[in-house]
């Protein structure tokens, strides 16, 4: 076991981890329930969190590598989660909701990187977030709705 100190959702935390634990495992052990595991092969995107402001797969980040870094999960972005979540809900796009937190973390990254994203750019950016319920169309409509909402706020 080793001790790993990092910033989680704005607070300094100390976690105990095995050398070969992933960030995902550490986050779950810290009671972060929004991160989910959907595969063991880096394909699903359910475990997406922000590391130093960028969306990464927490299943693949070695836990010790987080030492001194800043990790943000959906728990740390509740205001944005409610706004984006409302866009998803207005389309019925969240469905079972299991992929939603990972999806949303990547949408929030997209909104920062490319707030004017076209449909094609949205799809390309989000390609690593699998969803089996929605068929993706409603998610795209929801993301469009969310980006438009932000754009309106910026211009207002």
């Amino acid at each position: 076991m080793m001790e790993i100190r990092f910033k989680l959702n704005g607070r300094d935390v100390t976690a105990m981890a095995e050398a070969d634990d992933s960030l995902y495992q550490v986050l779950r052990s810290l009671g972060i329930s929004s991160v989910k595991c959907g595969c063991e092969t880096t394909n699903c995107g359910l475990c997406t969190v922000h590391m130093d402001g960028k969306a990464v797969l927490s299943c693949s980040v070695p836990a010790p590598r987080c030492a001194g870094h800043e990790i943000v999960t959906l728990e740390g972005l509740q205001d944005e989660a409610k706004r984006l979540g409302a866009c998803l809900a207005d389309e019925g796009a969240e469905q079972c909701g299991f992929c939603a937190p990972g999806l949303m973390m990547n949408v929030l990254a997209l909104a920062k990187e490319n707030p004017g994203a076209s449909d094609e750019e949205i799809d390309a950016y989000m390609a690593g977030n699998l969803c089996r319920c929605s068929g993706y169309m409603s998610q795209r409509r929801a993301v469009r709705r969310y980006l438009a909402m932000i754009a309106q706020e910026v211009s207002a």
Binding site: S33, S34, K36, T73, L74, E75, Q78, A81, K82, L84, G85, A86, L88, A89, D90, G92, E94, C96, G97, F98, A100, P101, M104
Partner: peptide
């Protein structure tokens, strides 16, 4: 087109699934 009743819990990452 009513919103799903559990929508907010699901889209804010609340612990609502079996493992959680």
């Amino acid at each position: 087109p009513v919103r799903k009743k559990d929508a907010e819990a699901l889209t804010t990452g609340k612990p609502v699934y079996t493992e959680d």
